[in-house]
Design a protein around this nucleic acid. Structure first.
Lengths: 212, 212
DNA sequence: TAGATTGTTAATCGATTAACAATC
DNA sequence: TAGATTGTTAATCGATTAACAATC
């Protein structure tokens, strides 16, 4: 209700709620309780209610939440109710995969431009988008009002690319390069590299299953 | 020191520490303090010391940590000091990118098998690995002692694939499908889909920059 | 030695969960 | 109405940070 500072944990759960609610819409289910969502998503119902209540009173006591209404609210909170242009830097295998992935981004989010440092790739297209040289980065971001960025360049280039993106006014970065990107500016950065995730997973391997 | 339960937050930081320590090795730096690591990685030095101290006394008072020794210790903690075979399910664009990414996985981790439901893909190779039909999943996992899995199949297939993997004895799953995978078994699952991450990022867009 | 830095305890901060009055 | 379920406060739990004795 009071727009206190929202924790990152809450923000990361909102897309999960949204996805399930969209699923319910497809199933023609119109009302849902925190208990039901909690059961399906394996979350505590009180947590779901508290998360949602931090943005407003979206439910009805004794009834639950109206699915359509809640979808609308969460999409608004996540700013998915407007067009968001995304730039992708690094047209290698991973960048290629993500841009073809464009279908997933639907919901008003789309990759609007792709950049790569390799001159050999210039002019070629990915998913119908021409690959541009890094020199054009700032201008394209400004003129096309691009606000989020995905980095899929090799590790040694990632921080520099991020610095350029931030200087150009990008407001959020999803970084897949295997290096932690930093900034002292007010830009949200998610580091999401595959290597680190797999290494963390390895921690949980069961010693007892070792063959030795 | 006492092997109390280690929080996931700690486990996620270990690969970050490791990566920076490997970088220091390359730079021929032999000793490092928690203060230095904290400065570079933007973390609280006390947190770094506490994280490491939960596994043993790796440092020297007044001196700091020996880089080589700490690398060895973290690699052991993360179980990266042994061969870990990984299976990839879903040979689409993303799966393709990640398997070519194989270079990154080095450190004794490698993609040992690739599966796909599409009969048209069978027999073709990615990065030198033949794509196999899902029917062979269980047997391959068992005979080749595969312990971790990466899921890059479409959302509707993801949960079923996960169930099969878990039934086959997989101990950890990195899921890129845009759906939260669940299990009641003792298997670690990281959900890492691009769509959710971008949607969370959108939350932080600056209202003031809206063009309206 | 004096300065630096760890490992660890205590303090703080924040997030999750439980409980329940309000109410549909 | 009785049962269900929210929004919210209080309790609990856990993670981060500060502080400092030990010691290299």
């Amino acid at each position: 209700m009071k727009q206190a500072k929202i924790s990152e944990a809450v923000v990361k759960r909102l897309p999960i709620y949204l996805r399930y609610l969209l699923h319910m819409q497809q199933m023609q289910i119109h009302t849902v309780s925190s208990q039901h969502i909690g059961k399906v998503l394996d979350l505590n119902p009180a947590q779901i209610r508290k998360d949602l209540a931090s943005f407003g009173e979206f439910g009805k006591k004794g009834i639950g939440y109206d699915v359509d209404y809640l979808v609308e609210k969460i999409r608004h909170i996540l700013k998915l109710d407007r067009e968001i242009a995304v730039v992708l830097v690094g047209a290698g295998h991973l960048g290629h995969a993500i841009s073809n992935y464009n279908a997933y981004l639907k919901d008003n989010m789309r990759i609007a431009a792709i950049f790569d440092a390799d001159p050999a790739k210039l002019g070629t297209q990915i998913a119908g988008i021409a690959i541009q040289p890094l020199e054009e980065l700032s201008e394209t971001i400004a003129t096309r009002n691009i606000r989020l960025a995905i980095i899929t360049v090799p590790a040694p280039a990632a921080q520099k690319v991020a610095d350029q993106l931030i200087a150009a006014g990008i407001e959020g970065i999803l970084n897949f390069a295997p290096i932690s990107i930093r900034t002292d500016r007010d830009v949200k950065i998610y580091n999401a590299d595959v290597t680190s995730s797999l290494q963390s997973l390895a921690f949980y391997l069961n010693e007892k299953k070792e063959i030795t």
